[in-house]
């Protein structure tokens, strides 16, 4: 049993649940909490109400972890601007101890709820913020303290394959894994994956490792639970750090997936950072329909990016695939299935 200490007052409660956004935080023998504002990226203690229904979060090991009514768990305040799931933010000044907030993402991101889609979500529930967790030296634990850095290692010049999409849930990770498999089929034994933008999901980056990536990173590895809100300050530094680490990793190819759509999650800033590193990038666009693919092609052209291949639901049927290919003048290929039924 873990002892929770609130500024001198002890409480005996069990805290053994840590959400995946905190996967880089070392294991704690005891949770020492201070009742102070909860800021983005801080390690914070939350409580699911006794009368609440159970919810499911992604644990620090990547498994689907149930939270029972009354459970305490460790998560972090953060922002989310999903095009298909949930939109929420950290209120000005941070989370207030004793205040009620929402679990915005499976990875344990918590904040004010601004809206959500009708899609069913296993994580969306109200929780109470109890306090921020202190390290042994009395400082508030924060993701940024455990962020990776390249330590000046040089860019190894690996080929880059960029996966971008017109929305969430259009098959970007499916496309990324198909490219990874194709690279391995051509003898590339060392491929690194980076989910550069969007909301952290350990399940997604572990999927890249399952299919043979030597390493896979996302924003948590660089100190943020998500790359939202759009247009925030300081994203150049975060993205450059992510590219430093990824491109200096020993690999002969790199698959980069931009989560969310092309306009959100600071994707345009990431693309600018990437263009400064490489002029030759093979870009795969995942789009929901032919017109979306056409619009994305025009937008990316303005950003100085040309598309090598189109995939996603816009290639699900022969009719739509052919229309996409004709409209965009770019090869379109479905990557979610083998041969099309005859």
């Amino acid at each position: 049993m873990t002892i929770i200490e609130f500024e001198g007052a002890f409480e005996s409660k069990l805290v053994h649940k840590k959400a995946s956004a905190l996967r880089r935080i070392p294991s704690l023998d005891a949770v020492r909490c201070v009742e102070t504002a909860g800021l983005e990226g801080s390690v914070c203690l939350f409580e699911l109400a006794d009368e609440a229904a159970p919810i499911v979060l992604e644990s620090a090991s990547g498994r689907a972890m149930a939270l029972a009514p009354g459970d305490l768990f460790l998560g972090t305040p953060g922002y989310r601007e999903s095009t298909r799931w949930v939109v929420g933010c950290v209120p000005s000044g941070g989370l207030r101890p004793g205040g009620s907030y929402w679990v915005l993402a499976e990875s344990g991101v918590v904040g004010d709820l601004l809206g959500d889609s009708p899609l069913e979500k296993g994580h969306l529930a109200q929780v109470t913020y109890r306090g921020a967790v202190l390290s042994d030296d009395g400082q508030i634990l924060d993701l940024r303290r455990f962020a990776m850095s390249s330590d000046g290692e040089a860019d190894r010049g690996a080929h880059i394959f960029l996966i971008i999409g017109t929305s969430a849930e259009v098959g970007k990770t499916t496309a990324g894994i198909a490219v990874l498999r194709a690279l391995r089929r051509k003898g590339h034994t060392a491929v690194t994956a980076l989910k550069a933008t969007g909301t952290s999901s350990l399940t997604e980056i572990l999927r890249y490792q399952d299919f043979g990536a030597v390493q896979a990173f996302d924003c948590v590895d660089f100190g943020l639970p998500t790359t939202y809100p759009s247009g925030r300050d300081g994203m150049d530094a975060i993205f450059n750090s992510a590219l430093d680490v990824t491109l200096s990793n020993a690999s002969d190819a790199v698959v980069i997936e931009c989560g969310g759509d092309i306009l959100g999650g600071n994707v345009p800033i990431f693309l600018e950072c990437l263009k400064r590193r490489r002029t030759e990038v093979k870009t795969i666009l995942a789009a929901a329909d032919a017109l979306g693919a056409f619009g994305a092609k025009q937008l990316l052209k303005e950003m100085g990016i040309s598309i090598s291949m189109i995939t996603g639901p816009c290639t699900d049927t022969p009719t739509l695939r052919e229309r996409t290919e004709a409209l965009c003048g770019i090869p379109a290929l479905n990557m979610s299935r083998g041969t099309a039924p005859v």
């Binding site: 992604e58 849930e169 990770t173 499916t174 990324g176 399940t203 999927r207 990557m335 299935r337």
Partner: peptide, 8 residues
Amino acid sequence: TAHYIIGS
């Protein structure tokens, strides 16, 4: 408990 269908 099912998160996403990823990677075909």
